[in-house]
Design a protein around this nucleic acid. Structure first.
Length: 470
RNA sequence: CGGGGCGUAGCGCAGCCUGGUAGCGCAUCUGUUUUGGGAACAGAGGGUCGCAGGUUCGAAUCCUGCCGCCCCGACCA
């Protein structure tokens, strides 16, 4: 009798089984994209409205959202960019829990200082827990348990994790949620000089990160707030719906990091970038100084609104003193480590990007974060030539490492175009019977609205080239 | 937490003042005709009227309490 339960036999059925055809969800008829024609009444600002209308998020309760497939996809892309830029600078990814013990926070003295914004929970044993609003205490605790020598420094650890701050009044969708995804990083250095280099290094990584997302975020001298510290800059994206009032010299807005080379180990290079990007007056209302601002030539003075998308801090030995994080200094003594922390509001960035990039038809994703590289619109579903051409493009794009979204629904053209415009894919390939008669399809830019007819092979090559693939 | 507003079909809303068969548009489903920028016609399904209590012969409607959500202010990635 055959033994059907033999483990060795089961092992033969591997996930590599070539019989399993990938069942891609990138066809709109199979995707989950609940778009709304009507403007949701609860949404006040354009990014919130568009995220709801484009089926990216659904509110679960005040300031708490489910990320529907399209929104999740963009969120992941943003997360990926943040990871790449951090790791390029030698910062090490990890993951700490959302729930923390209150004891750590009592040690640092912040359990009481943080106030009602911190969500406090009691577990079944009556232990005080909290949903972390940030992780300085926890990372310092990890650090001091494992690092004892200056030889282990410098060290920068970071993670991207959900945070909870029980805002008095959450609003504006993901821009001011109570639960939000944040990248927070922590550097540990032996000396103040080293820690300031880490500070400068982070400034560079942040400039690069925002530019890759198609955003211009201006570093502005800021207030350190409850985290405490001496040096701090906030990164602000200019937008009318921003919650911060900002004052700046318009020359700062001309600065671009671009694709210049940077050696993250070079103290001079990193310091030079900081000097360059902080060389003009740029402050939030918290640190605004009218006398200093007067020194900027009047024609260059600007006041505007901004969305805060990140902040970097150097806070010296505040946490290492409180929590006893010190290392052997190599001279027979102990030295408290110099620390800094650095945050990027990952989920907020979606809102900021949309605020900065949309029109009256919908979102316009920058190519760096778009959920799909391009849309394929089949104008005559069921027509053998159209179906074949679309299918061919879809497979070829996929084979070139691109992710197209193929609208294969049996629907009128108008609805398909409206959906594509709303969800903001930067490029669209339109396939219709009229064009196919001449052997061409249409490639359209979402941003400019300009279309160009070309054979399908050229359309494929065009899209691949835009994204540096194929 | 102070002030204002709203909870009625998946979404957007009317009905409430003056109690008496729960409605409209969009979406969904079926059929037909359509198809190059949110189609037309015909038909169908879908509701604990936020929850609880009270008044009444009778409550979506009146009264009380609670819950949720939104907006303005003080706080914040």
């Amino acid at each position: 009798m055959r033994d059907m339960t033999c483990p060795a036999r089961l092992a033969l059925v591997s996930t590599q089984n070539p019989v399993l055809k990938p069942r891609s969800p990138m066809r709109l008829s199979r995707y989950f994209l609940p778009v709304l024609k009507e403007i949701p009444s609860e949404a006040q600002i354009v990014s919130h409205r568009l995220m709801l209308r484009a089926g990216m998020i659904k509110q679960a309760s005040a300031g708490i959202y489910s990320w529907l497939p399209l929104g999740y996809k963009v969120l992941k892309k943003i997360e990926d960019i943040v990871h790449e830029e951090q790791q390029r600078a030698g910062h090490i990814p990890m993951l700490m829990p959302t729930l923390q013990s209150a004891d750590l926070w009592r040690e640092s003295g912040r359990y009481d200082a943080y106030g009602p914004e911190m969500l406090r929970i009691t577990d079944r044993h009556g232990r005080d827990m909290l949903y972390g609003p940030t992780n300085e205490e926890m990372i310092t605790d990890i650090f001091k348990g494992a690092v004892g020598s200056y030889k282990d420094l410098p060290l920068t650890l970071y993670h991207i994790q959900w945070k909870f701050r029980d805002e008095i009044r959450p609003r504006f969708g993901v821009m001011r949620g109570r639960e939000f995804l944040m990248k927070d990083g922590y550097n540990f250095d032996l000396t103040k000089e080293d820690a300031l280099h880490a500070y400068n290094r982070h400034l560079v990584t942040y400039l690069r990160t925002y530019e890759r997302m198609g955003l211009q975020a201006i570093p502005m001298r800021a207030d350190s707030g409850p985290i405490g510290g001496d040096d701090t800059h906030e990164f602000l994206v200019l937008a009318d719906t921003g919650e911060s009032e900002v004052f700046y010299d318009c020359e700062i807005a001309d600065l671009k990091f671009g694709d210049r080379a940077i050696d993250y180990d070079s103290v001079e290079q990193c310091a030079a970038i900081l000097a360059e990007f902080t060389s003009r007056y740029a402050r939030t209302d918290e640190t605004h100084n009218a006398v200093e601002f007067e020194k900027v030539p009047e024609a260059r003075r600007r006041s505007a609104r901004g969305i805060e998308v990140g902040q970097i801090f150097y806070f010296g030995t505040k946490y290492s003193d409180a929590l006893g994080a010190s290392v052997d200094d190599g001279k027979g003594g102990k030295a408290p480590v110099h620390m800094g922390s650095h945050g990027i509001g990952v989920s907020r960035l979606l809102g900021a990007i949309i605020e900065a990039s949309h029109d009256d038809r919908g979102i316009i994703w920058p190519e760096g974060v778009t959920p799909f590289h391009c849309g394929i619109v089949n104008l005559r579903q069921g027509d053998a030539d159209c179906d074949a051409a679309c299918e061919g493009l879809y497979l070829a794009l996929t084979a070139n490492g691109l992710e197209p979204l193929y609208d294969d629904r049996d629907e009128r053209a108008g609805g398909k175009f409206a959906t594509m415009d709303l969800i903001g894919l930067p490029w669209r390939i339109t396939v219709g019977p009229r064009g196919l008669k001449n052997g061409v399809v249409e490639v359209t830019s979402r941003r400019t609205g300009e279309s160009e007819e070309m054979p399908p092979e050229d359309a494929l090559a065009r899209i691949a080239r835009i994204y540096g693939k194929g």
